[in-house]
Nucleic acid binder design. Sequence first.
DNA 1: CGTACATCCTCTAGTGACTAGAGGAGCAAG
DNA 2: CTTGCTCCTCTAGTCACTAGAGGATGTACG
Lengths: 141, 141
Amino acid sequence: MQQGITIGNVSQASGVKVPTIRYYEQIGLLPSPPRTEGNRRSYDEGDLERLTFIRHSRELGFEIDEIRTLLSLQDQPNVSCEDADAIASKHLADVKLKIASLTALQHELERMVEGCSHGRVETCKVIDILADHGKCRFHGE
Amino acid sequence: MQQGITIGNVSQASGVKVPTIRYYEQIGLLPSPPRTEGNRRSYDEGDLERLTFIRHSRELGFEIDEIRTLLSLQDQPNVSCEDADAIASKHLADVKLKIASLTALQHELERMVEGCSHGRVETCKVIDILADHGKCRFHGE
DNA sequence: CGTACATCCTCTAGTGACTAGAGGAGCAAG
DNA sequence: CTTGCTCCTCTAGTCACTAGAGGATGTACG
């Protein structure tokens, strides 16, 4: 009888919080594990890998539905990976846009903070720039 | 009798959607405007500026509560702008972190998509990298 | 003047991806 | 045996909106 992994341990090992694991089970992203006599969830190595996969995908900014597709692809490895490729490519385009937008934002914020003379709001560029859109160089996203 | 601006026009002019404007009013971010005889909201130039300020701040990634603080600072211009400065500075730090994280992610995704041989999932790096955290160079945020 | 249609109103409920809390049961150590 | 930790289920809350129902009003045209 090989002992299963508790939810607390699988949480620690995967980096996914306990309530989040239960949430993933609830939305069908993670299969319901068997229970012990005392009704505790009992996970195995496969669950741990799946959870790590999920966490990592979330960190990379994939949405739950995308992860669902990715996981189903992983489950049947003889189909073409064009779908997975498409998801990642689409995501890559998004990420590039986001970086461009955030970089513009960074310059804008730097300009704001540098411009702030630490005096009164009347002369503070932070407020000024936010109030008057014409003075702003940020036009991202 | 100067005619007010309709919610639709103030929406167009500010770039904030109509339901969002009503939502902002509901949460007290935008003051309740006077109504016409027919119970329509009647905005003025000041409201338009405030909405533009809000939209721009949201675009820059400020949270509603931060905008609330910013707006209250704008309303009383003889206090120090250190608070506004602090908010913007904190936000700038966040943005820099996010950019670094997203850039790492970009490289990761590029590596994924380039590595995909357009064959079967078994040899697809997209799945591979997501499944095995050790193969991944992304450790952001 | 009538009628079509756009715009407006309020209200409730839904979204995504969790997070928090209540209220209780099981389990391991001292 | 008791203390305290982890676990269980369930409901409700978060943020910043968004969608939709069901109805009133305003405007343009014939």
